[in-house]
Simulated assay, not measured.
Amino acid sequence: MRIAETLTFRGADAGNHAAPLWLLAGEWVAAGDAVEHIESWWRIPAPLAWMTEVRYRTGGLDAAWPLLAELAWLTPERFAALLSVLGDASLTALRRRFDAEFPGTGEVDDYAWFAAWLLVAKPALEGRLREARVRREQAASRATALLGEILRREHEGDQHELVILRQEFSRLHAGLFEVYMATRKVQHQ
């Protein structure tokens, strides 16, 4: 494995980097160290997927949530593939529930919205998902951050501000907004 340490990240040739080799060997810390040497690794699909797996393997699902969200926003295909690699029963159950409930197209790109949907399904994860780096250019990322803000504001009771935030959320994804509002109608009956 010493030769793996000398491999540098070359984008298109990502499989020839040390990190995936360390992951295959079950050397989570070494894999994480290798990823951290890649400049702006969190903006590049392959290293982000590697680091997400490292976080999961070293800290469990709770530690991995922020990076799982970022991976879904950046590259839904890699997100879906990583869920299979991780083989986590609770993630698999959430994925099945998402597939059944999310008002999308049924294409892999729907997974970009997984984190936003997750806040509707499991609002207690808001604190963990708040740690994800928001990608302002991506609607699903903005929607997740906005929904986190809505959940925090619901506890404050500022109805005027909530109306404005909810309108903005509905413009980002009308179907997911309807799913969110359906959970609120049940709570207020």
Score class of each variant (00 low, 15 high):
L94V: 09
R78G: 09
L119A: 00
E5W: 05
D62R: 12
E101H: 08
G32N: 05
T92I: 07
L82Q: 04
A49F: 02
R135Q: 13
E168A: 04
L21T: 01
A143T: 02
G87A: 03
V163L: 15
E39F: 08
A143I: 05
R152W: 07
E36H: 12
P76Q: 00
T183K: 08
P66M: 04
L118N: 09
I38L: 02
L151P: 12
S84V: 06
E5L: 10
V35T: 12
V54S: 00
L86P: 04
R57S: 01
R128G: 06
I150Y: 02
H160I: 11
H173C: 05
E168P: 03
L176T: 02
A174I: 04
H173E: 03
L146G: 08
A34M: 07
A31S: 08
T58M: 07
M1S: 14
R97N: 10
L83E: 00
E161Y: 15
G59C: 11
R97K: 14
L125P: 11
W117A: 03
A30M: 13
A81V: 12
Q159A: 15
D33M: 08
V163C: 10
A19K: 04
A143C: 08
E168T: 13
A34T: 02
T92G: 14
A34L: 07
S141L: 03
A182P: 12
S141H: 00
E70R: 07
A100I: 03
V134I: 10
G15D: 12
N16R: 09
A100N: 05
R128Q: 13
N16Q: 06
D13K: 11
L48R: 01
L82P: 03
A80D: 14
A89M: 11
D99E: 15
A4S: 13
A46M: 09
L74R: 01
T183H: 08
G59L: 11
R152V: 06
R153N: 11
L7H: 07
A100Y: 03
E137K: 13
A30G: 07
G104E: 01
T92P: 04
A81Q: 13
